[in-house]
Nucleic acid binder design. Sequence first.
DNA 1: CGCGGCTTTGATGTTCATCAAGTAAAGTGG
DNA 2: CCACTTTACTTGATGAACATCAAAGCCGCG
Lengths: 245, 245
Amino acid sequence: MIYLIFLYIYNLFIMKTSKDILNCKYCIYRNLLFGQLDDKQYEIINNARQEFVFKRGEVIRKEGERINSFLYMRKGLVKLYKTDRRGKDQILSINKPGDFINLLNIFSNSTYKYSIAALEETLVCDVKLDAFIEVVKNNTDFALSVLNRISKISDETIDRRFALAQKQIKGRVANILLFLAENVYRNNEFRLPVTRREVGELVSMTTENIIRTFSEFRKDGIIDLNGKVITILDIKRLKNIDKTG
Amino acid sequence: MIYLIFLYIYNLFIMKTSKDILNCKYCIYRNLLFGQLDDKQYEIINNARQEFVFKRGEVIRKEGERINSFLYMRKGLVKLYKTDRRGKDQILSINKPGDFINLLNIFSNSTYKYSIAALEETLVCDVKLDAFIEVVKNNTDFALSVLNRISKISDETIDRRFALAQKQIKGRVANILLFLAENVYRNNEFRLPVTRREVGELVSMTTENIIRTFSEFRKDGIIDLNGKVITILDIKRLKNIDKTG
DNA sequence: CGCGGCTTTGATGTTCATCAAGTAAAGTGG
DNA sequence: CCACTTTACTTGATGAACATCAAAGCCGCG
């Protein structure tokens, strides 16, 4: 709710100062990471920054590409995924606005170990790595803040992986439905941003079994299904399935 | 082979200068991470440093404990693991000398999300976090080096997870045997440092199926089994099983 | 020496993947 | 905008991979 009010004010703000939308000085995500920068450092980042819009389905980065920018999401939804030699994808994570998609990997001086694609129309800020590193070098508080952020991302990854590994299919599907409802759309009704196959790729199950699980949830009155539109009817029961596996 | 010679020289060195073993100035792992420190910074680390020896089975850190030191391994073997509410463990990784066990997580200003236990007699260096952070703050090259190291660890984790998820049981067991033979013991014959159950906890399979797989490999002439001692007889075939799944 | 944890094998059951076949929806080119 | 093609979705039948259960031998250790 607070979030919605925030977004509303943000939108009003944009209307009035649309010139400034291209300057991240006014970005709502600024304080997530760039809080400690002074004006000069801020300018360095801002000058090295570009915005890109990707349509649903577009590939943002391809596994194997050299990493030469820091990315963060301002709008939309993306998936990080790897493709095996038989052409089958495995989705590592789904990321939403505010996430620093590649922060964990930009300092490896190496290439992307995964691809990134847009699941919805997505707005991404792209900061040249040279500039990012220059600021890290000149502001140790910022460096520590980056390290802190990285550690937290890593903590979450461990927790998430651990939780998934315990569960079998029903628990996994419940988990992703709750993730979308609570963390992404903040609503019990939403349009599924991924295909059934992609849900399978995310939780390591086949498309058919995802569909069967959806159907079962519907028969049990836990969700309502209408093509891509999903309504969670009994969130309590869904949470219980998520927890007990 | 080079590694063994290295160790040998290192041991000779210790004999002669045993007073210095407590000073990481002479640590063979020094350059892995602390290469860029000047003498003063070096002294800060060294003064905040303690060595601890853990026997097989001892818990080094427990999930939930506050993280207040940077750890690195000088000798031995450890496992990182999480325990679920039913008391079953899941092993996240097995780590060996030279690994920075908790580097990914020390900046989270939080608690351990996993436990660490010794699989063999293990020598761990423990550097107070305050000192570590002080040096990060005063040496941006060091900070970048830490970031680089973190990115690489993260890359490896992704690759490893991806590879494991593709494989079924034979491939997973082959994978861990090769890891032990090639990365840890550098020998085709070694004493398995974990129980069959722990192998299962590492690759998400039951004890019984690990045993069955071992037996099958033996019947096929790929390995020889003698209690805990394993000899890889046909490494080519084992590598093929690892690769093809 | 006896207890508990580790190892092993066999029998049985569950979960999930695979295969097949059909319908619905979403692109695509004329 | 419609015919056509492709991709997504759905259901059922079958089988493979793996978990679970049971029982017994082994080994180290107090």
